[in-house]
């Protein structure tokens, strides 16, 4: 299944989303950005929950606004602030899923819920934040979905609950052909999970890169003003003024290690990349 946004536009007053991105089969693609950057808007466009003001949004070449039920059955969805009614219990959720998805296995779902310690006799509104998040993920994974579309599935969770959910997602990816589109504002969640990440800020995609490339080839150069003046800037993505001089982001760490052995070069994680890209307003250094 291929999910694609081509110059997808959505305006909310002064905020304008304009983004292009693609989820390939068998991949875990992350969308990372600050709160209010446009992650949920992009997801809502993909799911046909809001009308686009321009561009093209498709799931397997089908317009996202006109998805048929068979295509929808191939999707498992988690939305950050929406889910099954809080008045329902797990057994009710199971019955709804059973009526909706031919591949849903009620017994497996119930035993997974038990394994994750979800109370069967309580209404969902009485669940803790972590329990609600786990239920959403289990429901999304319960019907052999080919793609999971997860908007901030780990939002508001403690480290242990987050790691448990990430483990569930890793297990889901063991099946060939499955893919995940996941958004988060927590970089560490995505580093260990995603094949590639899109970085979004103020409705625009600032960067798209494979996670491995970011971790292996991106670096942060920490230089004084004098060092910065002499630095080859062709391979710098952006630079931010700091008390000691400049922090510069590069996708060619090896070049600077080789040619500038006297400067400090740190490994860049997604957090550093996004922080530098956003604080430098995403402008490429020239």
């Amino acid at each position: 299944m291929v999910i694609q946004l081509e110059n997808a536009k959505k305006n909310y007053g002064s905020f304008e989303l304009n983004c292009s991105m693609k989820l390939e089969p068998g991949c875990v693609t992350g969308l990372i950005g600050r709160n209010g950057a446009g992650k949920s808007t992009a997801f809502k466009l993909i799911l046909g929950l809001i009308h686009a003001d321009g561009g093209k949004i498709t799931i397997d070449d089908k317009n996202a606004m006109d998805l048929d039920n068979d295509t929808k059955r191939k999707l498992g969805v988690v939305l950050t602030e929406s889910g099954f009614s809080g008045y329902l219990k797990i057994k009710d959720v199971a019955k709804i899923l059973k009526a909706s998805y031919p591949n849903f296995k009620e017994d497996d779902f119930m035993s997974q819920c038990e394994k994750q310690g979800l109370p069967k006799e309580k209404q969902i509104r009485e669940f803790s934040t972590g329990m609600k998040a786990k239920l959403k993920i289990l429901a999304a994974m319960s019907h052999d979905a080919e793609v999971l579309i997860l908007d901030e599935p780990t939002s508001g969770l403690d480290v242990i609950a987050r790691e448990e959910i990430l483990d569930m997602l890793r297990e889901y990816m063991n099946k060939e052909g499955n893919s995940i589109l996941i958004s988060s504002h927590i970089a560490s969640d995505l580093e260990g999970l995603c094949d590639d990440v899109y970085m979004i800020e103020n409705g625009q995609i600032l960067l798209h890169e494979e996670t491995g490339v970011i971790l292996d080839e991106y670096g942060v150069l920490k230089v004084t003003s004098e060092q910065y003046a002499k630095l080859e800037k062709e391979y710098l993505l952006c630079a931010k003024e700091e008390s000691y001089g400049y922090a510069c982001l590069t996708a060619q760490k090896a070049f600077y290690q080789e040619n500038y052995p006297d400067i400090t070069i740190e490994k860049a994680g997604i957090d550093q990349v996004i922080t530098l890209m956003i604080s430098a307003n995403g402008k490429k250094e020239t």
Binding site: N69, K72, V77, S82, G83, S85, I96
Partner: peptide, 18 residues
Amino acid sequence: NYDELDNGMAFIMTLPAN
């Protein structure tokens, strides 16, 4: 009313129903 509680409509529209 129950569907609209806690922005539930968004999730309902992701189920196999248009």
